[in-house]
């Protein structure tokens, strides 16, 4: 079942075209890795889907319905967005923070119900944070904090989860923890789109990779078809070691091959 469908989407910032004629279908149970060099439009695409940016052209449909025509409250229950910033403004406990993920279900006045609390507990257990549910957010390590924020995004039990660089700044162990949770969420029947720079983890955990380069989708498919030597050289300008380990691809950049098609222009997005 196609959960999310983007067709012919274009977006510019001033004179600079960031996304050009982007089309993408996402199925239920699928985890998509959105990859590409800095400034290639990954975060912009994610933010367009999340409704934070308005594209100039193109449609975004969620289960065949135009996103702009869906009631914002209903949309917030179907789609959850995990921002890159990791911003937490007030020092609340882990459980209170995760429970914020239920706000789209609560609306303006309703208190947390038993159903809400069960969803919060499920999200905390899935992210392995239930043991420190009473700790304050400021007392957490970076790895713990990122799992708590992920649990918040999962607590609304949306059909679609958009995660903008959820593993940036995490050590390898914690990065694997987060990717593992996102993968399990997808395989429980949800759709997950994750913006990611670590190509090995992208290849290992994502069912499909979408490579953005200079505002276009350069490649879309399984990792072996996307992470070719040619694509890596053309889009990233790198020569990479490509091998196999424990049944999955390993991609390690080795050196620059030049800046032939550099898209590394100043931008405020990843």
């Amino acid at each position: 079942m196609i959960q999310l469908s983007v067709s012919a989407l274009s977006k510019s910032f001033g004179a600079r075209r960031v996304l050009e004629n982007i089309s993408l279908d996402v199925r239920a149970g699928e985890m998509i890795g959105l990859i590409g060099p800095n400034g290639s439009g990954k975060s912009t695409l994610l933010r367009c889907i999340a409704g934070l940016l308005t594209p100039e052209a193109g449609d975004i449909r969620i289960k065949d319905e135009l996103r702009d025509e869906i009631d914002p409250g209903l949309l917030a229950r179907q789609l959850s967005y995990l921002p890159q910033s990791g911003e937490v403004n007030w020092d609340v406990t882990v459980e209170v923070l995760v429970a914020l993920g239920r706000l789209p279900h609560q609306g303006r006045w309703r208190a947390l119900t038993g159903t809400d609390r069960e969803a919060v507990t499920r999200a905390m257990e899935a992210c392995d944070i239930a043991s420190f549910r009473d700790r304050l957010v400021t007392e957490l390590s970076g790895g713990e904090r990122s799992r708590v924020l992920l649990a918040r995004a999962m607590a609304g039990e949306p059909d679609i989860l958009l995660a903008d660089e959820p593993i940036s700044g995490l050590d390898p162990g914690h990065a694997i923890d987060v990717m593992d949770r996102l993968g399990r969420l997808a395989h429980s029947g949800k759709s997950v789109i994750v913006v990611i720079h670590d190509l090995t983890l992208a290849a290992r955990y994502c069912d499909r990779l979408v490579l953005l380069h200079e505002a276009h989708i350069t490649a879309d498919g399984p990792s072996e078809a996307v992470l070719t030597e040619d694509n890596l050289a053309r889009c990233y300008g790198v020569k990479a070691f490509r091998g196999m380990a424990e049944g999955g691809a390993v991609i390690v950049p080795i050196r620059r091959t030049g800046r032939a098609e550099d898209s590394d222009v100043p931008s405020n997005e990843g």
Binding site: R47, A50, G51, L52, P72, G73, L75, A76, R77, L79, S80, Y81, P83, S85, E87, V88, N89, W90, V92, L97, L100, L103, P104, Q106, G107, R108, W109, L149, R152, G156
Partner: peptide
Amino acid sequence: MTVARPLDALTLGEEAAQTMGFD
């Protein structure tokens, strides 16, 4: 008093609050 819930959502920043359905 009607902004109470949106203010809770703002704990996670403006973008997160907006994607939680608050204008």
